[in-house]
């Protein structure tokens, strides 16, 4: 059962991912929250500063949250060191529907920080071979230095097709340059048995979804993770409303059949 009172967790490791992004590994100080699943999120309280929603980025043993410093709360979270404490509520929201994806080919498309909520999906596929058909991971990043989990990607490549592209290469970059959708041409998509999971900035999600639908992937086999201004996490405050949905309850992961018409409405 989730709780509306933050439960104290201790930081056991703080791993810098990029210049402004840190992965925090956490363990409960006393009582643990119920188990998280890929795609769900926690409300993370930086004591005395405030709370933000953060999706889980790893669930292998300890809970890991990847945080980018974009404001006062996330800035404070990125300054945490091992031994420091945070308050956690959750798990909240919907996760990736991996049961529906069992036996399907899985296509993971991530842009920027959108790789964080999809990382546990990749871990599950690696840890439980045979659960899915093939797995392809397409990643877009702003620059090589802003690519998340860069040290982990070679491990993934041993059993998963991983394609990475950046918008702004540095002189040492020998990989792909361009939008993430260009990577769709690099993989063999079996459209009749593929399920796609897409996460990133909303314009990237729309662009990617259009490219997948144009190739013939039905919208019902595409899931995405959306974000609005989540505050309570329990569907009471209404800050995260997207049309008829409250994304902290009905999302953040929703099917693209539901998302597409809502994303087309201006100012929603």
């Amino acid at each position: 059962m989730t709780t509306t009172v933050p439960v104290p967790y201790r930081v056991t490791a703080a791993t810098p991912e990029t210049a402004d992004t840190v992965s925090l590994e956490l363990e409960p100080i006393e009582r643990a929250l119920p188990a998280f699943s890929p795609g769900r999120f926690a409300m993370v309280y930086a004591f005395g500063i405030g709370e933000v929603p953060i999706s889980v980025s790893a669930l292998r043993g300890r809970l890991v949250l990847t945080v980018r410093a974009v404001g006062a709360v996330t800035g404070a979270l990125c300054q945490l060191r091992p031994g420091d404490a945070v308050g956690l509520r959750g798990p909240y929201g919907t996760g990736w529907d991996l049961d529906a994806a069992a036996d399907s080919d899985l296509l993971v498309v991530a842009g920027g920080l959108g790789l964080a909520p999809l990382r546990p999906v990749v871990h599950q596929a690696l840890d439980r071979p045979g659960r899915f058909g093939s797995l392809a991971v397409l990643v877009g990043a702003r620059s090589p230095g802003e690519l998340l989990y860069r040290a982990e990607l070679p491990q993934w490549r041993t059993s998963v097709q991983v394609e990475v592209t950046v918008d702004q290469p540095d002189p040492t970059w020998r990989g792909t340059v361009g939008v993430v959708t260009a990577l769709l041409d690099r993989i063999d998509l079996r459209l009749d048995r593929t399920r796609a999971l897409v996460c990133g900035p909303e314009a990237m999600i729309r662009h990617t979804a259009r490219a997948l639908l144009a190739r013939g992937l039905p919208a019902r086999r595409l899931q995405t993770s959306l974000e609005r201004n989540m505050r309570c996490g329990t569907g009471h405050c209404g800050h995260c409303q997207l049309g008829p949905l409250l994304l902290c309850l009905d999302g953040p992961v929703i099917g693209y059949e539901r998302a597409e018409p809502l994303l087309a409405v201006r100012e929603l």
């Binding site: 933000v52 980018r68 974009v70 842009g111 920080l113 909520p117 702003r142 900035p201 990237m204």
Partner: peptide, 20 residues
């Protein structure tokens, strides 16, 4: 052209970027 326009948006920029 469309890909270039998308990249002009600099969607992965540090502030106002993607989801949590």
């Amino acid at each position: 052209l469309q890909a270039t326009r998308i990249r002009l948006l600099d969607l992965y920029a540090p502030v106002g970027g993607g989801p949590p």
